[in-house]
Every structure is written in structure tokens, then in C-alpha cells.
Computed example of a mutant assay.
Amino acid sequence: MIFPPPSTGSAGEHRLQQQLGTAERAARFYDQQVRPHLTDEMREFIGCQSMVFLATADSHGECDASFRAGPPGFVHVIDYRTLAYPEFRGNGVLASAGNMIENPHLGMLFVDFTHHHVGLHVNGVARLYDDAELRRFHPGLPTDVAPGRGPQLWVHVTVQEAYIHCSKYIPHLEPAPRPLGHDPARPKDADYFTKRRTAVWSGLS
């Protein structure tokens, strides 16, 4: 029987692998794909991405999934073990950042939907900094991540593991053309999931 090193994967993973007979296949994946740092290819991939999905949890294990987007490279690769990305002003809830204060473990998923159709998982430990504080440690941070918008905070991520998300079930998406004007039938964001749809939207309910 092949067993991965104890530091690779969770106890729950290994329990299910034994139960479902996938331990040897999982061990090969851990050995061949999971890295404790970013490779050159991973760094290049992150530098081209314009979106990332986030997973956080508070101190009680209550989870939150979120999404960040920006110009390609808005998640800045500092080195093989370090990433940073800006938190801009949003709805004021700060759910992801609030979770990081209680529980610094962060999961990130980068997905290329339009070119190579592959994903990259990055798991690590997050720490929050204000802009001036992080620039004292890393003066090479970009200053024009989003023109006209300054970050409220930076999320500094110490990478613990990184590995591929295979392309098998990643859909191919085409970038949508930018609309010429606002669709009057579309509710405002604040009303989108909270108010009764007009007749135009009744077919979706």
C-alpha cells in the first residue's frame, strides 16, 4: 500500500481514500502535482489571470466563498512562496477579510476558462496589511492595479501548497462583448436577488 507523507492532505482525505480505494492514485497525485511553493510555470499562469475564487472560514469553521477580479496580474506574485492582492472598497461587509482575521487559512482557485482550460489551486496563510505598510516590505507592488481605485487593504499570502485543477470539467467560455448601454430590464445589483422580478423576468422564477 502506498501512503503519502503525513503532511500531504487532510485526515479526512486519507480516510475516504482508504474507504473508496483511491489511496494509491491520490498518492501519485500528491507526489507528482502538489508543490510546497509556486513553480515558474505557476507564477507565469497567475500573472496572466484576471480572476480568482476564494475560500475562507471563520474560527468556528463557517465557510464563505467569494470572487475577485482585476486586470491580468492583479494577484501579484512576489516570489515563489508569496502572493499579494488588493481588497478594494465593496459592500462594506468584508466577509473574506473578516474570516482571515479569525482564521488565516485561505484557499485560492485560478481558472483559465478561455485559453488552456486549466486551473491552479493555491492554499496558504493570509495576513492583512494596509497599502503603506505592505509597501515598506515589498516596494515593488504595482501602483496601478485598478486605475482610479486605491486598495483598502492588501491580502498577503504565504503559499503552503499549489497544485493543478485538471481541464476535464472546465467549460470553454468566450469573453462577452461589452454592452453599449444599460439594459433597462435588468434590476440593479442591490435589487437583483431581493425584489420581485418584472414581467420580463417572470420566466426565470
Rank of each mutant, 00 (worst) to 15 (best):
83 L>S: 06
31 D>W: 07
11 A>E: 06
202 S>T: 10
49 Q>S: 05
29 F>Q: 08
187 P>R: 14
168 K>W: 14
15 R>W: 07
78 I>R: 03
192 Y>I: 09
191 D>H: 07
132 A>P: 00
34 V>G: 00
102 E>L: 10
105 H>W: 12
89 R>L: 15
72 P>C: 01
174 E>C: 04
3 F>A: 02
3 F>P: 00
28 R>D: 09
136 R>G: 09
59 S>D: 14
24 E>P: 07
165 H>S: 03
39 T>Q: 11
79 D>K: 04
152 Q>P: 04
131 D>T: 10
61 G>V: 04
102 E>Y: 02
25 R>G: 02
109 L>F: 07
197 R>K: 06
166 C>I: 15
58 D>V: 13
196 R>M: 14
2 I>E: 07
186 R>Q: 05
138 H>A: 11
82 T>V: 10
200 V>C: 08
130 D>L: 11
32 Q>S: 11
57 A>Q: 09
94 L>C: 11
76 H>A: 02
88 F>E: 06
181 G>S: 12
23 A>Q: 14
107 G>I: 09
10 S>N: 02
9 G>W: 00
104 P>M: 05
131 D>E: 14
106 L>V: 10
197 R>W: 06
46 I>N: 01
48 C>E: 13
58 D>Y: 03
186 R>D: 02
74 F>N: 00
66 S>F: 00
125 V>P: 02
73 G>K: 00
27 A>M: 06
135 R>V: 04
148 G>K: 11
161 E>H: 09
144 D>F: 14
190 A>P: 01
133 E>T: 14
13 E>S: 12
87 E>C: 07
133 E>V: 13
139 P>I: 03
126 A>N: 04
185 A>D: 08
14 H>R: 15
191 D>T: 05
129 Y>S: 10
71 P>D: 04
43 R>H: 05
51 M>T: 04
150 G>P: 07
130 D>C: 09
184 P>M: 09
97 A>P: 01
179 P>F: 08
31 D>T: 04
51 M>R: 07
106 L>T: 02
101 I>D: 09
146 A>D: 11
30 Y>A: 08
69 A>C: 03
32 Q>F: 05
183 D>I: 02
151 P>V: 13
197 R>D: 06
119 G>V: 00
181 G>L: 14
10 S>D: 02
98 G>M: 05
34 V>N: 01
137 F>V: 08
173 L>Y: 08
85 Y>T: 03
138 H>R: 05
198 T>C: 05
76 H>S: 08
147 P>Q: 14
20 L>K: 13
63 C>R: 08
56 T>N: 04
37 H>A: 15
131 D>F: 10
37 H>T: 13
171 P>A: 07
190 A>W: 01
193 F>Q: 09
205 S>H: 13
34 V>Y: 01
173 L>Q: 14
28 R>C: 09
168 K>S: 15
103 N>C: 04
75 V>K: 01
7 S>N: 12
